[in-house]
C-alpha cells in the first residue's frame, strides 16, 4: 500500500462569524497518497483554494485535524511552518509566482539557498530541472522576459527542485491558454510518472481534469465525490 502524504480528519473552515459567517469547508476527510495526481474540482466558491491553503499550512482550520508527511500542522509556529513548507511542500500559484527582480536561475535557487544547499549541488539541480521543464539556456532571463507558460514552468521547477513530498498547485493553468495549459499539465504528469512526484491541483478546466488520475469534487465545501480513474 502506498504511503499517505496528507491526511485530514473532519476539516471545518469558516470565515467570519454570526450573520456573515461563511462555511468554506465542511467535514473534509481526505487522504493523499504518494504518487497521486489529484485534481480538486468544483464550482467557484466551493472551497478549492481554501482547502489547498490549509493543506500547506498557509491558512488555519476552524476544527479538524491535518497531517502532512506525518506531522500535524496545527501546532507549528510561523517560522516552523515556513521551514516545513520549504522542506516538504512545493507551491505553485495561479500566476506571478516568481520574484520579478531575480533571474530564472536565482528564482529556482532561492529555496535551496534558504536550505543551505551547497553551491555546486544547487547549480546542478537548477540545470537538471531547467532542462526538465524545457527552459535550458533561459537561466539568466528575468521573469518579465518569459511568457506566462514559461513562467509557470519555472514555478514548477522551483517547486520541484527541493525534492518536496508533494506539490500543491492552485489553478496553475487558469492564466494560460488551453494549449499551453495542457502542455503544462502534460509536464506535471510526466514528473508524476517518471519521478513519482505527488501533485494536488485545483482547476475549472474540464480538459485539465481529463488528465488527472484522481478527481476530488467539492461542492459548498463538502467532498461530494472522490474518484480514481
Amino acid at each position: 500500500m502506498a504511503e499517505i502524504v496528507i491526511k485530514t480528519k473532519n476539516l471545518d473552515k469558516s470565515f467570519g462569524s454570526g450573520e456573515t459567517e461563511i462555511h468554506a469547508l465542511r467535514d473534509v476527510n481526505l487522504e493523499i497518497m504518494r504518487g497521486d495526481f489529484a485534481a480538486i474540482v468544483g464550482p467557484s466558491g466551493s472551497g478549492k483554494t481554501t482547502l489547498l491553503n490549509i493543506l500547506c499550512g498557509l491558512d488555519t482550520v476552524s476544527s479538524g485535524e491535518i497531517q502532512v508527511s506525518g506531522r500535524s500542522l496545527q501546532s507549528m509556529s510561523g517560522s516552523e511552518l515556513a521551514k516545513f513548507r520549504r522542506e516538504h511542500i512545493g507551491l505553485v500559484f495561479q500566476a506571478y509566482n516568481l520574484i520579478p527582480v531575480l533571474t530564472v536561475l536565482e528564482n529556482i535557487e532561492y529555496v535551496m539557498l534558504l536550505q543551505n544547499v551547497p553551491s555546486a549541488e544547487r547549480k546542478e539541480r537548477v540545470r537538471k530541472f531547467l532542462t526538465e521543464v524545457g527552459l535550458e539556456g533561459k537561466e539568466n532571463r528575468f521573469p518579465a522576459e518569459l511568457s506566462g507558460g514559461q513562467q509557470q514552468r519555472v514555478a514548477i521547477a522551483r517547486a520541484m527542485v527541493s525534492h518536496p513530498d508533494i506539490i500543491l498547485a492552485d489553478e496553475p493553468t487558469a492564466n494560460l491558454d488551453s494549449a499551453t495549459g495542457a502542455q503544462l499539465l502534460e509536464m506535471m504528469r510526466r514528473f508524476n510518472e517518471e519521478l513519482n512526484m505527488t501533485f494536488v491541483f485545483s482547476t475549472h478546466d474540464p480538459q485539465i481534469m481529463e488528465r488527472s488520475k484522481r478527481m476530488v469534487t467539492l461542492t459548498d465545501g463538502r467532498i461530494v465525490s472522490d474518484e480514481l480513474k
Binding site: 510561523g78 521551514k83 520574484i99 520579478p100 529555496v111 534558504l114
Partner: peptide
Amino acid sequence: EFGIIKSIGTTP
C-alpha cells in the same frame, strides 16, 4: 510578492 516569498519557505 512578499506573500510568495513567505509561502515558499522564507521564515518571518
